[in-house]
Nucleic acid binder design. Structure first.
Lengths: 157, 157
DNA sequence: CTACTTTCTCAAGTGAACTTGAGGTCAAGA
DNA sequence: TCTTGACCTCAAGTTCACTTGAGAAAGTAG
C-alpha cells in the first residue's frame, strides 16, 4: 500500500485498480504505444495521473466499437509526456464524436431499411443495398471480420 | 454455367456469387450450423433458395455488429429444412430490431454523455458511468475483446 | 476417354486483443 | 536475513471468423 511518493506517479497496480483494467492489459497498451509509462531506475513502470484518463478513453472507445488502431490514431493528437490540457481532450472529443455520429447514423439507416427489407423478399436480391453497399468492396485478406464484446448486448437481454 | 437442375437447388459456387461471400466462408457457416446444406449422392453441398436469404441476413447482422453466436441464436427460430415463410422472417426481424434499437440507444447515451464527460475531468474518476457500467462485470477469460470491420468507419473518413 | 473445373475434407495459418505461465528482480516488513 | 508481494520480460496460448493449401473425388465439355 505504501507507494513511492515520487512526484505523484502511479504504479501499474494502482492504475489497474483505478481503471478496472488487468495489469497485463495495461502492459500491452504500453507495449503498443497507447500509453507510455516512464520507468524507475529498477525498471518498473510509472504512470502520470493523466494516463488514467488515456486508459479510460481507450475503454470507452472500445465499447463504442473502435479498434485499438483507430484509438491510437486519435490519441496521437495528445502530448505523450506532458499532461494534456482540457483543450487537447476537447479536440479529440470532437473528432471522436463525429465518428460516433457516423456509426450511429449507419446503424439507423440499416434499421430503417430493415423493416422494408426483411419479409419483403428483397433480401435475396443482389440489388438490395442493405447487404451490398460499397462497404463490402475491398474486403479481402485473412483474419476475423468482426467480433463484438458480449457485454454490449447484455443490456438488451 | 449449366447446373444440375435438380429441383432448383443451388451449388455452393452459385450461392457464393449471389451473396458475394467466399466459398470458404459459406462452408464455414455450414460447418457451424448457420445454414445447413443438403448433399448430393457424391457429397456436394446443395442449397435451397432461402439459404441465400439466411446468408444475406448473416451479412447484414454482422455489419451491424452482431457475433455469429448471436446470429445463430436468432436463426434458430427459423425452420432449417423447410423454406421459411414471411411470418417466420418477420418474427426474427422483430427480435433483431429490438436488439438493434438497444445497441443504437446505448451508443446515443454514450455520445450524449461524452460531451459532458470528456474535457471535464470525470473521465478519471471511478464513479464515471461512461466507462464503469455493469457492462464490465464478468469480463474475464482470454481471447479478443472487440474488433471492428474497417469498412464501417470508412464512411466517416 | 481425357481434360478441366468445381467441389470436397482436413489441417494449419491469420489478425486482433489480450491472458497465462515460467523464471527472475526489487523493495519493504517481520 | 529472510520472506513476501508487486513488478519485470519473453514466449506461447486463446477466441473469433475466417482463409489458405494439399491432396482427392465429382461432374461437364469436347
Amino acid at each position: 500500500m505504501a507507494t513511492i511518493r515520487t512526484q505523484g506517479l502511479l504504479t501499474i497496480g494502482e492504475v489497474a485498480s483505478r481503471t478496472g483494467l488487468a495489469v497485463s492489459a495495461i502492459r500491452y497498451y504500453d507495449d503498443e504505444g497507447l500509453v507510455s509509462a516512464r520507468r524507475t531506475p529498477g525498471g518498473k513502470r510509472m504512470f502520470i495521473r493523466s494516463d488514467i484518463r488515456r486508459l479510460s478513453f481507450i475503454l470507452i472507445a472500445q465499447q463504442m466499437g473502435f479498434s485499438l488502431e483507430e484509438i491510437r490514431a486519435q490519441l496521437k493528437q495528445l502530448p505523450l509526456e506532458r499532461t494534456p490540457t482540457k483543450r487537447d481532450w476537447e479536440k479529440i472529443s470532437r473528432g471522436f464524436r463525429a465518428r460516433l455520429d457516423a456509426r450511429i447514423g449507419m446503424l439507423e439507416r440499416l434499421r430503417d431499411r430493415l423493416d422494408g427489407c426483411i419479409g419483403c423478399g428483397c433480401l435475396s436480391l443482389d440489388a438490395c443495398k442493405l447487404y451490398n453497399p460499397d462497404d463490402r468492396a475491398g474486403r479481402t485478406g485473412t483474419g476475423p471480420r468482426l467480433v463484438v464484446q458480449k457485454s454490449i448486448e447484455s443490456s438488451a437481454e
